[in-house]
């Protein structure tokens, strides 16, 4: 039998290899498409406000089993599971402060209901929850217009810590102002302020930290504060140890550039 295909392969083996390649192509295409759909669905995750104790975004996406037990156990019924075709990733719990703010139950029933740990039991006190951060639109906040409002400050459950008032005395042709300021070290993101805000569209809103919070960076030294040591030869802790006695200050040293490196 000299049944050799054009490529010199035995026809049955050739068939087998072609079939194998076809199968692999279908499987590969399908898997890629599936993976794309998943990533696309997860793309809106940064915009969701999750219940207290929720893991960081990617971990939460992985861990949430979409069972809705937190939803059932939420006393004010503010939690919802995202149905298909919505703006947020499918099936996972979220809340919308303007219509339903978290009332910060001390026993955290939503977290205790979570079977997978997507709402982490490491959260012991509800005051330590960081669901989001209140952000003020100073162009539309009544207090910034010189009106006496301060409702957010009065309604805030972390009294006097999460939202403080900064007073600006009356000036010529200017009202005195009592301006609310949000402090991220105390704000849980419960959203009571957003719910209570009297403007047509809330001027104080809860947003996920990732969307609003900046980071100052390690290299800034605030010399005028008491908890920052001021020295001429500041050495960063993470600077690599140099063996040579007169080694130049490494380029990576924080705060060093052409202005103070002696160069220029």
């Amino acid at each position: 039998m000299s049944e050799q295909g054009p490529s010199g392969l035995h026809p049955t083996r050739r068939d087998f290899l072609v079939k194998l390649a076809q199968g692999a192509a279908i499987a590969g295409t399908g898997a890629l498409l599936w993976d794309y759909i998943l990533r696309n669905e997860a793309r809106a995750a940064p915009y969701a406000l999750r219940p207290p104790g929720a893991l960081a975004e990617n971990d939460f996406n992985a861990a949430c089993i979409k069972c809705g037990q937190c939803v059932v156990d939420c006393p004010p019924h503010i939690l919802k599971l995202q149905p298909a075709g919505g703006n947020l990733p499918i099936g996972m719990p979220f809340y919308t402060p303007r219509t339903g703010a978290c009332i910060m139950c001390p026993d955290i029933p939503c977290m205790n209901a979570c079977p997978t740990g997507a709402l982490s039991p490491k959260l012991k006190r509800i005051e330590d929850a960081r669901m989001g951060l209140a952000v003020i639109d100073i162009e539309n906040c009544l207090s910034y217009k010189g009106l006496r409002c301060e409702i957010c400050h009065r309604e805030c459950p972390i009294k006097g810590k999460a939202i403080t008032l900064e007073t600006h005395p009356r000036q010529t042709s200017r009202h005195a102002m009592f301006i609310p300021l949000v402090h991220s070290d105390a704000c849980t993101g419960c959203g009571i302020c957003e719910k209570a805000c009297p403007t047509e569209i809330a001027a104080i809103r809860i947003l996920p930290h990732k969307l609003v919070q900046g980071k100052i960076g390690e290299h800034y030294r605030l010399g005028w504060t008491f908890d920052t040591e001021v020295t001429q030869d500041f050495k960063p802790a993470a600077a690599p140890p140099s063996s040579a006695p007169d080694a130049p200050v490494p380029k990576t040293a924080p705060g060093m550039d052409y202005l103070n490196s002696g160069g220029l």
Partner: peptide, 22 residues
């Protein structure tokens, strides 16, 4: 992908969740 692949697209899960939760 680090995401429960079927749970994110499952028509069983979708239908069932939406009957119970909206």
């Amino acid at each position: 992908s680090g995401l429960a692949a079927f749970e994110w697209v499952s028509p069983i899960g979708m239908a069932h969740r939406e009957i119970i939760f909206g």
